[in-house]
Design a protein around this nucleic acid. Structure first.
Length: 189
DNA sequence: TTAATGATGGGCT
DNA sequence: GCCCATCATTAAA
Protein backbone atom coordinates (compact mmCIF):
# COMPACT_ATOMS: atom_id res chain seq x y z
CA UNK A 1 0.00 0.00 0.00
CA UNK A 2 1.27 3.44 -0.92
CA UNK A 3 -0.08 7.01 -0.93
CA UNK A 4 -1.95 8.54 -3.85
CA UNK A 5 -0.46 11.70 -5.39
CA UNK A 6 -2.40 14.97 -5.19
CA UNK A 7 -2.59 15.08 -8.99
CA UNK A 8 -4.88 12.02 -8.91
CA UNK A 9 -7.79 14.15 -7.67
CA UNK A 10 -7.26 17.07 -10.03
CA UNK A 11 -8.44 15.23 -13.13
CA UNK A 12 -11.78 14.81 -14.83
CA UNK A 13 -14.34 13.52 -12.31
CA UNK A 14 -15.53 10.67 -14.54
CA UNK A 15 -11.98 9.39 -14.88
CA UNK A 16 -11.43 9.63 -11.14
CA UNK A 17 -14.65 7.71 -10.50
CA UNK A 18 -13.23 4.82 -12.50
CA UNK A 19 -9.69 5.15 -11.16
CA UNK A 20 -10.94 5.04 -7.55
CA UNK A 21 -12.16 1.47 -8.08
CA UNK A 22 -9.65 -0.87 -6.43
CA UNK A 23 -8.28 1.85 -4.12
CA UNK A 24 -8.45 1.51 -0.32
CA UNK A 25 -10.25 3.66 2.24
CA UNK A 26 -8.65 3.59 5.66
CA UNK A 27 -10.17 4.82 8.91
CA UNK A 28 -8.19 3.84 12.00
CA UNK A 29 -7.92 0.03 11.88
CA UNK A 30 -10.76 -0.32 9.38
CA UNK A 31 -9.94 -0.83 5.70
CA UNK A 32 -12.20 -1.30 2.68
CA UNK A 33 -11.57 -1.60 -1.04
CA UNK A 34 -13.66 0.69 -3.23
CA UNK A 35 -15.74 -1.41 -5.63
CA UNK A 36 -18.55 0.96 -6.69
CA UNK A 37 -18.68 4.73 -7.30
CA UNK A 38 -20.87 7.43 -8.83
CA UNK A 39 -19.82 10.72 -10.43
CA UNK A 40 -21.62 13.98 -9.59
CA UNK A 41 -20.65 16.79 -11.92
CA UNK A 42 -21.30 20.50 -12.27
CA UNK A 43 -24.45 21.24 -14.29
CA UNK A 44 -25.71 17.85 -13.16
CA UNK A 45 -29.31 18.15 -11.86
CA UNK A 46 -28.74 15.19 -9.52
CA UNK A 47 -25.73 16.79 -7.86
CA UNK A 48 -25.94 18.58 -4.54
CA UNK A 49 -23.81 21.30 -6.12
CA UNK A 50 -26.34 21.97 -8.91
CA UNK A 51 -28.02 24.92 -7.22
CA UNK A 52 -24.78 26.49 -6.10
CA UNK A 53 -22.77 26.80 -2.93
CA UNK A 54 -24.50 26.24 0.41
CA UNK A 55 -23.26 25.51 3.90
CA UNK A 56 -24.05 21.82 3.44
CA UNK A 57 -22.29 21.26 0.11
CA UNK A 58 -19.37 23.63 0.64
CA UNK A 59 -16.82 20.79 0.67
CA UNK A 60 -17.81 19.99 -2.93
CA UNK A 61 -16.67 23.47 -3.94
CA UNK A 62 -13.44 23.20 -2.00
CA UNK A 63 -10.13 21.75 -3.16
CA UNK A 64 -9.98 18.21 -4.58
CA UNK A 65 -8.90 15.26 -2.45
CA UNK A 66 -11.17 16.10 0.50
CA UNK A 67 -14.11 14.24 2.02
CA UNK A 68 -17.66 15.44 1.44
CA UNK A 69 -19.91 13.66 3.92
CA UNK A 70 -23.57 14.60 4.12
CA UNK A 71 -26.51 13.62 6.32
CA UNK A 72 -29.58 12.30 4.54
CA UNK A 73 -32.96 10.63 5.09
CA UNK A 74 -32.91 11.71 8.70
CA UNK A 75 -30.47 9.01 9.77
CA UNK A 76 -27.75 8.22 7.27
CA UNK A 77 -24.43 9.59 6.07
CA UNK A 78 -22.82 9.19 2.65
CA UNK A 79 -19.16 9.60 1.74
CA UNK A 80 -17.81 11.44 -1.29
CA UNK A 81 -14.37 12.46 -2.45
CA UNK A 82 -14.00 15.93 -3.95
CA UNK A 83 -12.47 16.16 -7.40
CA UNK A 84 -11.45 18.33 -10.32
CA UNK A 85 -10.69 21.86 -9.16
CA UNK A 86 -11.58 24.23 -6.34
CA UNK A 87 -14.75 26.21 -7.09
CA UNK A 88 -16.19 23.74 -9.63
CA UNK A 89 -18.39 21.64 -7.35
CA UNK A 90 -17.76 18.01 -8.33
CA UNK A 91 -17.30 14.82 -6.31
CA UNK A 92 -17.39 11.04 -6.42
CA UNK A 93 -19.84 9.15 -4.21
CA UNK A 94 -18.48 5.92 -2.74
CA UNK A 95 -21.38 3.48 -3.12
CA UNK A 96 -19.78 0.28 -1.84
CA UNK A 97 -16.59 -1.15 -0.48
CA UNK A 98 -15.30 -4.66 0.03
CA UNK A 99 -14.38 -5.23 3.69
CA UNK A 100 -10.64 -5.88 3.95
CA UNK A 101 -9.50 -5.30 7.53
CA UNK A 102 -11.30 -4.84 10.84
CA UNK A 103 -14.26 -6.90 9.67
CA UNK A 104 -15.28 -7.88 13.19
CA UNK A 105 -15.39 -4.22 14.19
CA UNK A 106 -17.43 -3.42 11.08
CA UNK A 107 -19.93 -6.11 12.07
CA UNK A 108 -20.22 -4.54 15.52
CA UNK A 109 -20.69 -1.08 14.03
CA UNK A 110 -23.41 -2.41 11.74
CA UNK A 111 -24.96 -4.67 14.41
CA UNK A 112 -24.77 -7.47 11.87
CA UNK A 113 -23.24 -10.91 12.08
CA UNK A 114 -22.78 -11.71 8.41
CA UNK A 115 -20.44 -10.21 5.85
CA UNK A 116 -23.30 -10.11 3.37
CA UNK A 117 -24.82 -6.60 3.24
CA UNK A 118 -22.10 -5.30 5.54
CA UNK A 119 -20.77 -2.53 3.27
CA UNK A 120 -22.72 -2.81 -0.03
CA UNK A 121 -24.38 0.61 0.05
CA UNK A 122 -23.33 4.25 0.61
CA UNK A 123 -24.89 4.52 4.07
CA UNK A 124 -23.98 0.99 5.08
CA UNK A 125 -20.29 1.61 4.51
CA UNK A 126 -20.20 4.83 6.52
CA UNK A 127 -21.79 2.99 9.46
CA UNK A 128 -19.30 0.11 9.07
CA UNK A 129 -16.36 2.54 8.89
CA UNK A 130 -17.78 4.64 11.72
CA UNK A 131 -17.85 7.85 9.66
CA UNK A 132 -20.23 10.74 10.26
CA UNK A 133 -20.65 14.47 9.67
CA UNK A 134 -17.63 15.15 11.90
CA UNK A 135 -15.50 13.67 9.14
CA UNK A 136 -16.74 16.14 6.54
CA UNK A 137 -14.20 18.20 4.62
CA UNK A 138 -11.10 16.27 5.70
CA UNK A 139 -8.03 16.13 3.47
CA UNK A 140 -7.39 12.56 2.32
CA UNK A 141 -3.88 13.45 1.20
CA UNK A 142 -2.60 14.54 4.58
CA UNK A 143 -0.75 11.61 6.22
CA UNK A 144 -2.01 12.81 9.61
CA UNK A 145 -5.68 12.70 8.56
CA UNK A 146 -7.93 10.23 10.39
CA UNK A 147 -9.19 8.99 7.01
CA UNK A 148 -6.94 8.16 4.08
CA UNK A 149 -7.04 6.67 0.61
CA UNK A 150 -4.19 4.40 -0.49
CA UNK A 151 -3.41 2.35 -3.55
CA UNK A 152 -2.04 -1.20 -3.71
CA UNK A 153 1.59 -1.65 -4.74
CA UNK A 154 0.48 -3.71 -7.72
CA UNK A 155 -2.44 -2.37 -9.72
CA UNK A 156 -5.27 -4.89 -9.76
CA UNK A 157 -6.80 -5.94 -13.11
CA UNK A 158 -10.57 -5.89 -13.48
CA UNK A 159 -13.33 -4.93 -15.86
CA UNK A 160 -15.38 -1.78 -15.13
CA UNK A 161 -19.14 -1.71 -15.77
CA UNK A 162 -20.86 1.66 -16.42
CA UNK A 163 -24.58 2.10 -15.72
CA UNK A 164 -27.16 4.69 -14.64
CA UNK A 165 -26.97 5.99 -11.09
CA UNK A 166 -29.16 4.72 -8.25
CA UNK A 167 -31.63 6.55 -6.01
CA UNK A 168 -31.94 9.83 -7.92
CA UNK A 169 -34.94 11.41 -9.66
CA UNK A 170 -33.12 13.79 -12.00
CA UNK A 171 -30.22 12.99 -14.31
CA UNK A 172 -31.23 9.33 -14.39
CA UNK A 173 -30.11 8.81 -17.96
CA UNK A 174 -26.45 9.66 -17.34
CA UNK A 175 -24.18 6.57 -17.18
CA UNK A 176 -22.25 7.87 -14.19
CA UNK A 177 -22.21 4.78 -11.98
CA UNK A 178 -19.16 2.54 -12.11
CA UNK A 179 -18.38 -0.79 -10.47
CA UNK A 180 -15.97 -3.71 -10.62
CA UNK A 181 -17.48 -6.50 -12.67
CA UNK A 182 -18.47 -9.62 -10.71
CA UNK A 183 -17.45 -8.12 -7.35
CA UNK A 184 -19.65 -9.57 -4.61
CA UNK A 185 -19.88 -6.33 -2.63
CA UNK A 186 -21.41 -4.12 -5.33
CA UNK A 187 -24.74 -2.76 -4.09
CA UNK A 188 -26.83 -3.97 -7.01
CA UNK A 189 -26.41 -5.38 -10.52
C1' DT B 1 -37.64 -13.81 -5.19
C1' DT B 2 -39.27 -8.97 -5.72
C1' DA B 3 -42.02 -5.04 -4.35
C1' DA B 4 -43.98 -1.75 -1.15
C1' DT B 5 -43.54 0.89 2.96
C1' DG B 6 -42.15 3.21 7.32
C1' DA B 7 -38.44 5.37 9.78
C1' DT B 8 -36.60 10.01 10.66
C1' DG B 9 -34.87 14.76 10.40
C1' DG B 10 -31.90 18.36 7.88
C1' DG B 11 -32.20 21.46 3.99
C1' DC B 12 -34.38 24.46 1.15
C1' DT B 13 -38.65 27.01 -1.07
C1' DG C 1 -44.33 21.43 3.42
C1' DC C 2 -41.86 18.74 0.37
C1' DC C 3 -37.71 16.56 -1.02
C1' DC C 4 -34.06 13.51 -0.15
C1' DA C 5 -27.14 10.43 -3.84
C1' DT C 6 -31.00 5.12 2.03
C1' DC C 7 -32.04 1.00 4.43
C1' DA C 8 -34.54 -2.67 7.11
C1' DT C 9 -38.74 -4.74 7.46
C1' DT C 10 -42.82 -6.57 5.85
C1' DA C 11 -45.88 -8.43 2.48
C1' DA C 12 -46.79 -10.73 -1.66
C1' DA C 13 -46.12 -14.17 -5.04
Amino acid sequence: MKPIPESFFKKDTIKISKDLLGKYIIHKNLIGKIVETEAYLKDDPASHSFKGLTKRNSAMFGPPGYSYIYFTYGMYHCLNITTNKEGIGEAVLIRSIEPVKGINQMKKNRKLNSIKNLTNGPAKLTIALNLNINHNNINFLNPNSPIKIMQPNKKEKFEIIETERIGISKGRELPHRFYIKDNLFVSKK
